[in-house]
């Protein structure tokens, strides 16, 4: 391939596979047709088959990553629109966020330690339960690799969507709050999408828990960085 075409090629591959996977998902709507899995899987496979380097891939698509910043700013709107809910139920929401984040950080560290993963991979796993832009910010702050964290976040979302539904059947959950928190804390955006299928209230709680967990983790990241040193 001529070198000047490489950036354009990878940008086209990314955009086309994204549009296609959204179309496939709208048609079939199975767990394996998640656009997350299809787009990521397709781009990764193609890059491996063509022996492309990450540098090649990034040359055409880096600006898409830049848009993660404005997307983070946009999270202000869902917080603002649910301010009444936050005011009324903040203790319950806080319990969910604190419990979930603590379990997530400790379980990631312990599991990675027992499995003997390399230190940078271990740290990249720590913020995997929160939504990607926040997770990458935390990862950079505590000495992980933001790119690996993004991969771990995707894995968490894929796994959480499937596991969450099973857990919902087994756990004795009477309130929509606990059902929503399960999805929002356990599987960020993917979980929030699943929770919207369970119910309107579950969906909005999951979305709120996801954003609040992201913010809480970013706020706690400097302390975490000191604790992990």
């Amino acid at each position: 391939m001529r070198p000047e075409i490489v950036p354009l090629f990878w940008l086209a591959v990314t955009l086309v596979s994204y549009c296609l996977s959204r179309w496939i998902d709208a048609r079939l709507h199975q767990w394996w047709t998640s656009p997350l899995l299809l787009t990521f899987g397709f781009c990764l496979t193609l890059a491996l088959v063509l022996h492309a380097s990450y540098h090649d891939y990034l040359s055409g698509t880096f600006w898409l990553g830049t848009l993660l910043g404005p997307a983070t700013v946009a999270f202000a709107l869902p917080i603002y629109e649910k301010r009444e809910m936050i005011r009324r139920y903040w203790p319950t929401l806080a319990v969910g966020v604190v419990a979930g984040s603590t379990i997530s950080i400790i379980s990631s560290l312990l599991l990675a330690h027992w499995l003997g993963l390399a230190p940078d991979v271990r740290l990249s796993l720590v913020p995997r339960s929160i939504t990607t832009p926040f997770a990458m910010a935390v990862s950079g702050g505590i000495g992980g690799i933001p790119g690996l964290t993004a991969t771990c976040v995707i894995l968490t979302g894929l796994c959480g969507g499937a596991v969450g539904e099973l857990l919902l059947k087994w756990l004795p959950l009477r309130s929509s709050f606990s059902r929503g928190a399960l999805f929002g804390m356990g599987a960020h955006g993917c979980g929030a999408a699943k929770a919207r299928e369970v119910g309107v209230e579950e969906g909005s709680i999951a979305g709120l828990v996801m954003v609040l967990a992201g913010l809480a983790n970013v706020a706690f990241a400097p302390v975490l960085a000191i604790l992990l040193r």
Binding site: T14, T39, Y54, G65, L67, L68, I154
Partner: peptide, 10 residues
């Protein structure tokens, strides 16, 4: 999803 894909390709 489109915005964090480039990062995940790391």
């Amino acid at each position: 999803l489109l915005f964090f894909l480039p990062a995940a390709m790391a």
